[in-house]
Design a protein around this nucleic acid. Structure first.
Lengths: 154, 154
DNA sequence: CTACAACTTCAACTTAACTTTAAGTCAAGA
DNA sequence: TCTTGACTTAAAGTTAAGTTGAAGTTGTAG
């Protein structure tokens, strides 16, 4: 007795995602459903894989809005093709690679720091405002004209 | 004319952190200040380095509450010793190393995925609920008794 | 002594990704 | 038919790490 349409509860337990999250994804346009006469959601089976992609993408570090863009190219009612997936997974892997490179660079800087004991912060890349400022848009930023000299004195 | 105490504005521009953030850090106990007769904050010079440590720790991916624990061992009014810093930076590097290892594992799984085209998700570690569930406490989790079979059929 | 920049507190707002609650409707087994 | 459990919506709550704004006070240069 294979169901072609899943209730939100079925999708929830099979995909391992709370119903509230599924409704939330739907408001964001990440997934889509049809309605019964009684106004209840029914999801096509392909949504199962769509949700799996969302989870995988989040694992990689993608935000829902980024995922929204990525999934926009895939059909809602059909399982994505091999080509679809190859394209997606390749770009995700590249992203991961870049993230890994960044973290390795950070670790190497930190290793240098340990060596210098950070009693002379001047030589310590991790404390260098110039570097640290290239972070997220919001949050603390180093102001123009600042130098790490200030951290060094005394 | 070296000042031994910094106003919040001075600390802000020298550390590259907004005054609002500094007040916020103070409410969290990450930094501490004395007050003038007129109730204005004055920070000891060592706070400069403390804020630098906070920034560096955030860069590593630590939350403020984790940093709170880490900084709790350091004196507020004095520059940390070489031993203090060595201990801290070593543990941070280990943490970074672990993060890097996790990401490399994820990338390798994803690489396998690309190979298999993910038309047989069964062999695809990245879609495996058992793995994905070991994530953050909040957010979507895979429920007991689920298997990735559900994602595979059809 | 007067301006005015810099400071003060407190409360409300921001974003992401959901969860929780309230109040009510639908579906299905006994 | 009745009784549950599953579903519906809308609004409010959650956490992190701050930012913003309002209303008032302090410090200092001229």
């Amino acid at each position: 007795m294979v169901m072609d349409w899943l209730t939100i509860g079925e999708l929830s337990s099979r995909a391992g995602v709370a119903t509230s999250a599924l409704r939330f994804y739907e408001t964001k346009g990440l997934i889509a459903s049809e309605r019964t006469d009684g106004n209840q959601r029914r999801y096509p089976r392909a949504t199962l894989r769509r949700v799996a992609l969302i989870r995988a993408g989040q694992e990689i570090g993608l935000s829902l809005s980024e995922l929204s863009d990525a999934l926009a190219t895939l059909p809602h009612e059909k399982t994505p093709t091999k080509a679809d997936w190859t394209k997606l997974s390749r770009s995700w892997r590249n992203r991961l690679d870049a993230q890994i490179q960044e973290m390795i660079a950070l670790r190497d800087e930190l290793s240098d720091c340990i060596g210098c004991g950070c009693l002379s912060l001047k030589s310590c890349a991790i404390f260098n405002p110039g570097d640290a400022a290239s972070d997220l848009g919001t949050g603390p930023r180093y102001l123009l004209g600042d130098s790490s000299e200030d951290l060094v004195k005394r």
